[in-house]
């Protein structure tokens, strides 16, 4: 659902909307599935994003639109907003707290949340881009040959 909202915000062509909706669900599904198996949240996000990235290539060929249109709205729901918020809250607390004992807990939580946010963001971006890098040569060869001028 969230993916669909973002698609509308970015003015995606209407014919692509159902696919984005589906991809958003797939990404979250993969992530939750891996979390269920007790895998680190960073790797779960990476896998979810990679799933979206790989899927968006056939979708791009099928709908004749760049893959970018599919994967960006679809991964945005996986952005760790709550963790980012907790990290920010923790940073503010760090500026006012003075007691050592309390400070340590807050510092621990803040750094933990912050690093998770950072790594999840990186893994999301890398996850969706790596399929493009892997498939790039193939897909261009695949598409260009029938259209070349000579």
């Amino acid at each position: 659902m969230a993916a669909l909202g973002f698609a509308a915000l970015f003015n995606v062509p209407a014919r692509c909307l159902p696919i984005i909706f589906l991809f958003g669900a797939v990404g979250i599904f993969v992530k939750l599935l891996l979390l269920l198996f007790g895998i680190n949240i960073v790797f779960a996000c990476l896998a979810g994003a990679a799933a979206i990235g790989f899927l968006s290539i056939p979708a791009a060929h099928y709908k004749h639109a760049p893959p970018l249109i599919f994967y960006i709205p679809a991964v945005i729901p996986m952005v760790p907003g709550i963790m980012a918020y907790r990290m920010m809250l923790g940073l503010i607390k760090l500026t006012e707290s003075t007691q050592t004992l309390n400070y340590n807990t807050v510092l621990f939580e803040t750094v933990n949340n912050g690093l998770k946010v950072l790594f999840i963001l990186i893994s999301l971006s890398v996850g969706v881009i790596v399929p493009m890098l892997l498939m790039r040569k193939e897909s261009i060869k695949h598409v260009r040959v029938p259209f070349s001028k000579k």
């Binding site: 659902m1 669909l4 909202g5 509308a8 915000l9």
Partner: peptide, 9 residues
């Protein structure tokens, strides 16, 4: 739709 997206989040 963006409202719904927020609710989805």
């Amino acid at each position: 739709l963006v409202g719904l997206a927020g609710a989805g989040f």
